[in-house]
Amino acid sequence: MSTYLCYIPVQQERPTRAALEVLTHLRALAHRDGAQLAACVLHPEADRFVEALKPYGVNRVYLVKHPVLARHLNAPVLAALEAVFRAAQPALMALPSTEAVKDVLGALAARVGAAALPDVSAFDIGTSVTATRPVMAARVLADTETTVRPVLVSVRAGSYEARPAESPTEPDVVEVPFDFDTATLRATLREVVTGATGQVDLSEADIIVAAGRGVRDEAGKQLVEALARELGAAIGASRAAIEAGLFPASLQIGQTGKVVSPTLYIAVGISGAIQHIAGMAGSKVIVAINRDPDAPIFNIATYGIVGDLYQILPLLLEEIRRIKAES
C-alpha cells in the first residue's frame, strides 16, 4: 500500500492551519486511492501533537524528537525530514509552503532524489503528480506535472479548507531514530529577532488589516493597529509601508513576503502592485480603502471605498464598536 505523507509544522503549541489544510486534501486523495495517510511532526516533544491529528483521520504519525528542533535551522530540519522520508517511503510528501519549508524543499528533493513542485495552489495524484502553480507574481497559472517519483509538493496557505474526518482515527505512532550532532553544524542560529509581540500570526489569521504607502505616519499606523485590535485581526503591510519604516519586514505580504488567504482582507492605503496582489489575491473577501480611484487594488476588491484612510478608519472603528455593542 502506498503512503501519502504530510509534514505538520507546529506553532504556538498546535499544528498550523496551513498544515491541516494540506492534510485534509491529502486524506481525500488517500481515501480515493486506497493509500495510507501519514503525518510527521518534528519537535523536541513531538508526542504532544499526536492528539491534535487524530480528528484528521491519520493512519500513522512519524515523530522526530530532538532539542535542536525547537527553533528552525535548515540542516537539522533537513536531516529530520530525510529520516522520516526514508522511514515512510512515501509516494508523495506534501508540506505547507511556509518560510521554513521553502528553506529546505529544494535541498530535501535533491537529497532524497524526489521531484519538487513548489508553492502550488492545487495538486492531484494520477499516473503523474499534477499541480497548479501561480507563476510570474501570480499573474499566470502554470499546469505542471512530474516525470519521476517520489514527489515533494509544497502548498500555498488557503488552497484547501481544513476539515476533520467523519470519524477520528487511532494512528500508529512511530518515533524515527534521530542522532544529530550539533557540533557538526556549519550554519548556526545566533538569535531570532521577532517583530511586535502578542499579535495574531499573519499566515494563520482569519482577518488581516494590511497597511500600504497611504499609511504615512505614526498616527496612521495607530489607526491600523486599532482596527486590527477591534477585529482580532493580524496586521500586514505592503513593501512600501515597510520601506517607510513603520512596520517590521516580518509583516510583508506579497510575492517576496508572505502569501495569505484570510476570510477578510482589509487593504488600507494599498495601491495594489502586482507583487502585493500575488500575496493576497486568494483572500475570500477583500476590502480596499484608497484615495486614488484608479488604484489597481479596486480591480480585485469585493468592496472598495475611495477615500482618505485618515477619515475612513476612525468612522469604521466607530461603526464596528457600535455593532459590537449592539450584539
Partner: peptide, 23 residues
C-alpha cells in the same frame, strides 16, 4: 523531473463594488 504542460490565465475575481457617497 517536472514539466509545465500549459499556462492558463488566473480566473478573474467576481467584479467588486465601489461604495460612494458621504464617508
Amino acid at each position: 523531473q517536472t514539466r509545465v504542460t500549459g499556462y492558463r490565465p488566473v480566473p478573474p475575481r467576481a467584479p467588486g463594488r465601489k461604495l460612494e457617497g458621504e464617508p
